[in-house]
Nucleic acid binder design. Structure first.
Lengths: 206, 206, 206, 206
DNA sequence: TATGAATGAGTATTCATTCAT
DNA sequence: CATGAATGAATACTCATTCAT
């Protein structure tokens, strides 16, 4: 993704390595118990080098979140644009979110667990980007409502939060538990059914 | 002295005061940025006194979780026992969980946000008590399935995780956002509809 | 020793129990790593009780030293008074000091090792009592010199320090090492020979 | 910068400065009452810097002992190698040990007083190096015995402990007392006479 | 750009001592 | 006399961050 041109400089490689090292270390130890020195070592750079690319330790976590959620939003929007059925769109979003989790377990841990350090932190850094994701989902819901496929009494925003939350809850128990990928795939299907049936308009149009 | 209610010993009062102070401080600063000295001051005890009642700072967080979730489980089980309709049971659980959140915002923040410090932490301390809560929900789902009211292809455990997660997601955005209680109440109703309709068996029984 | 009359009150028993507990705990952990609470528990009294008998933790160590060295001086002076030959007196002192060590290993550890916490401590508390012991030895040396049995060019004080030090050195290695009593007895005999021969006047009187 | 002698690296300078500061502070306050912060200030480094060179506070004391006793052993062995008469060798060892004490009073205090913190400490850290010193002395004694100059019934090891102890006893009273160097020099001569005469074989060879 | 030695602010925890009972 | 719950001062050590090279 995004290496379209030769735009990755040597620096960007280093930035990326640091970020990936952060994910690995944060996932293993948690944010506060992770040491910048260990991240540096894992990334194969000197401690000080990290500060050439990131303002401070907090911004490692923030950058992980911002980079990845932007990628996720881009990908979701691209995929959804190719579909017409809102229900299908929701199903695709669910698959993509849980697919990301299943493929990048460390990242999943960081985003589901470590990101929640404090309310202040979430408000200040995560909220804006997070809202973009929720808005993407809400837009699909609204489209479905306008097409008469989804019930209109459900607030698109509330549905988006519930959907995101349900998937996050499944991710949480998956990450805490043994966590084989197959189980998560089945859970994705079930969650999709619950949520889509939960909002589907009843009546003639079945 | 001070056994007003006749039941609480002096010790239990002190323990409780420390725990309430912890909730307040953790909610304001987050776990790692909270200072034991500030908790002590808020509780009106000496720093050292905290260590007469709790092993260390970690166990303040752990104890908050364990004490409150036990209370919540007890209350939920008591309420649910008085109802017969599984759908009604689910609705009551949803109301209770979001009701707790709305009434005890600080506690909600701590449980929704601060509790997630690290995977290790969650696995080691939160998982067992958390499972009790999920099991309570799953039992209701299974009951509904056996009565033919809920669709059988949905795993009760997956539904429980999704329900918990959806509510947690709503709580998260409520806590991060402005957070007026009315909004949460409406969200509770919508979430109940989504999830209950999402699992309700289709067919004759509409 | 010194229970001549019924003079031991219940209190003195408790004081003595605390002191013996201190010896045991100090010997095991060293002075600074010993906890007043552990001494109290070992003595079978409450923490606060210790402060009814001793000013503070320092004075536990001081009191051990002062009590025991007084007893030792009394005993040495009594024994020595019954002998006429100064060489024999020295031999008896050596036997008594190392005998005490062999019989009360914990006490030996405390006096040989733990007593040396700081120069200030030694100067302030140990010096006076310690000097009484050195003076007793020096008096024997002077007596021997006056009788023409010991060489006059050796300062009695220097000899006393050397004798005490030699025995303390043997005690130290005995305490650090395996420490079977037999070895110490042999060492006592050898040390006696070295030191007595070392000061004995040469010439006709062999 | 600052490689004046051309041999010491910057690091070694810093390590050495910290060690010298430790000696000064330990001598003044005793080990447990010495503050790491004061050692750092005395050494002219930041608190944390100490931990780049030493594992912890304990290892400051350990390192002082190990470094200095190694130097002492090296020096003693070198000096003794140039002499043939065992009695002369012993005299030289005594002079060197008390000479070190007289010239480095702070170090003497630390080694004689502060090093004895607990039996465990001595067993674990001091014993091995200390034994090297005792062995050096014992070897001289054995040599004297083989040459028929020293009495064979005295165990070389016991003699070594006694000699070390006698000198340590003299050092102790010197350090506690006023401690002018002249007094120690005289004591050294007297102690040498006592101990050497104490082991010298009697008979024709006077 | 990159390094990593040096910094020093910051804090959980301990434990000798007190004092209300 | 005796207790032991409560106190709170005191400190070794860590680790994010800097900056001279």
């Amino acid at each position: 993704m995004a290496k379209a041109t030769g735009e990755r400089t040597r620096s960007n490689d280093k930035r990326e390595r640091i970020l990936q090292a952060s994910v690995k270390v944060f996932a293993r130890k948690g944010f506060y118990l992770s040491r910048v020195a260990e991240i540096a070592k894992t990334a194969g750079v000197a401690d000080g080098t990290i500060y050439l690319y990131f303002k401070n330790k907090d911004h490692l976590l923030i950058s992980i979140f911002e980079d990845r959620i932007d990628e996720m939003c881009d990908a979701v929007e691209a995929q959804v644009a190719g579909l017409t059925d809102p229900a299908e769109k929701l199903r695709r979003i669910i698959d993509m979110q849980l697919g990301l989790v299943a493929e990048h377990r460390d990242l999943a841990e960081v985003l589901t667990i470590n990101l929640r350090q404090s309310t202040r932190f979430l408000k200040q850094f995560a909220a804006p980007k997070f809202n973009r994701y929720l808005d993407t989902i809400a837009a699909v819901v609204q489209e479905g409502q306008e097409k008469g496929l989804f019930r209109k009494e459900i607030s698109p925003r509330v549905f988006a939060c519930s959907l995101f939350g349900a998937l996050d809850g499944l991710t949480l128990t998956w990450v805490i538990g043994r966590g084989d990928a197959g189980r998560l795939e089945k859970a994705a299907a079930a969650a999709a059914t619950i949520l889509i049936e939960g909002i589907r308009a009843r009546g003639g149009a079945r």
